[in-house]
């Protein structure tokens, strides 16, 4: 009976410390899972659905036991580790974290706090508080809050828009679940194990199939950004910077970095970008070329992407936000989406 509860909990939160401990105790090998068609099937649907929709497939209760759920997570993680695609890993992490969030809603305030403390070493206390007519269920130390929500882009999650007292951010239950979901996502993204094929035959076949699908999907993503450049699909911040450049206004270092890295990422070449900078008051071709090439990764090992929206907001480069901005958190994501819409119309 005790074992059942343990497996039930582990199936719900397979990334948790206790689930990992249980897996170790049960000492299950890939070879054993290889023979379990149900686990493989569930792993497949978890991964494929994550890849397409960022949602995790909910198990079919009739056919799969909690044990199968747990092992399907385990084999899915092995696949993500083996395929080594950051894009795939992110999608999977998002999906699994969302799945966990659905369970968080149903937990007691105390249980949520325990989960956070045990797994993320958070200072999260269940503390019912009523302030200005609003009910809060928990308080979370601001450092934990910030570490979890750094990637959030909605204004309501900015620390400045939260109620903070004596170092603790007050959260409603739904907020607590959402912040915990972010922590789960970060955990799954950062917990990378070195895994290399070959695998037992069924898993090997599954792996090869997946690799083709993932490669096709990332190729498609690249196609969506690269190719013909459509300036009308640039986000407003980038359009504003281009306007400033055309007028010969001096740009700050970070503004120049933003515009250059953005244009490089959408496929503009170094010379075309250089031409845009000619009007800059302090233009020096040799220096400008060097900097552009550096950002393009021709001079060092790093290829840069432009900063995310959150950074542009605090550096005051986020201007003239439009309705599409609400749904994205990165200027390149804006471009990718808008391009899809604009392109069919123009061609």
């Amino acid at each position: 009976m005790l074992e059942d509860t343990k497996i039930y909990e582990a199936a719900k939160y397979p990334w948790s410390i206790s689930a990992r401990r249980l897996l170790k105790e049960l000492d299950i090998s890939l070879k054993e899972i290889d023979a379990d068609a149900q686990a493989l099937q569930l792993a497949r649907s978890r991964l494929l659905q994550a890849l397409e929709t960022k949602e995790s497939a909910s198990p079919e209760r009739k056919t799969s036991s909690e044990f199968v759920e747990l092992t399907s997570f385990f084999v899915a993680k092995v696949m993500v580790d083996a395929i080594k695609s950051m894009f795939f890993r992110r999608r999977w992490a998002t999906a699994e974290a969302k799945r966990a969030e659905r369970y968080f809603f149903k937990e007691s305030d105390l249980k949520l706090a325990q989960l956070a403390t045990r797994n993320f070493n958070w200072q999260l206390d269940p503390k019912p508080t009523r302030i200005a007519g609003r009910e809060f269920s928990h308080r979370l130390h601001f450092a934990n809050y910030l570490a979890a929500t750094a990637g959030f882009h909605e204004r309501e999650w900015k620390l400045v828009n939260k109620r903070m007292v004596s170092g603790y951010v007050l959260l409603r239950k739904g907020d607590t679940a959402r912040v915990l979901r972010a922590a789960v996502e970060q955990l799954l993204i950062s917990d990378v194990k070195q895994v290399t094929p070959p695998f037992p035959p069924n898993i090997q076949q599954f792996y090869e199939e997946l690799e083709v699908i993932v490669r096709g999907r990332t190729e498609r993503m690249k196609q969506e950004i690269m190719g013909e450049i459509i300036p009308e699909a640039f986000p407003p911040c980038i359009q504003a910077l281009l306007g400033d450049m055309a007028e010969g206004k001096p740009l700050s270092h970070i503004a120049r970095f933003t515009i250059t890295s953005f244009l490089l990422n959408v496929g503009m070449d170094v010379d075309s970008i250089l031409n845009l900078f000619v009007k800059a008051p302090d233009f020096r071709e040799d220096l400008a070329r060097y900097q552009i090439e550096h950002i393009a990764g021709k001079r060092g090992s790093t290829e840069y992407t432009p900063p995310a929206c959150a950074y542009l907001v605090s550096t005051r480069l986020c201007v003239k936000k439009d309705k599409y901005c609400e749904f994205i958190r990165h200027p390149l994501a804006y471009y990718r989406r808008r391009r899809k819409w604009i392109k069919p119309k123009s061609s």
């Binding site: 601001f142 450092a143 570490a147 900015k158 620390l159 400045v160 828009n161 605090s314």
Partner: peptide
């Protein structure tokens, strides 16, 4: 507690004390 905070997290602290994005 503040020691491990990254740059983005510290930016949120600056925004808080200066009221940016409020």
């Amino acid at each position: 507690e503040v020691q491990p905070l990254g740059s983005a997290e510290r930016r949120e602290i600056v925004d808080y004390v200066s009221g940016v994005g409020l």
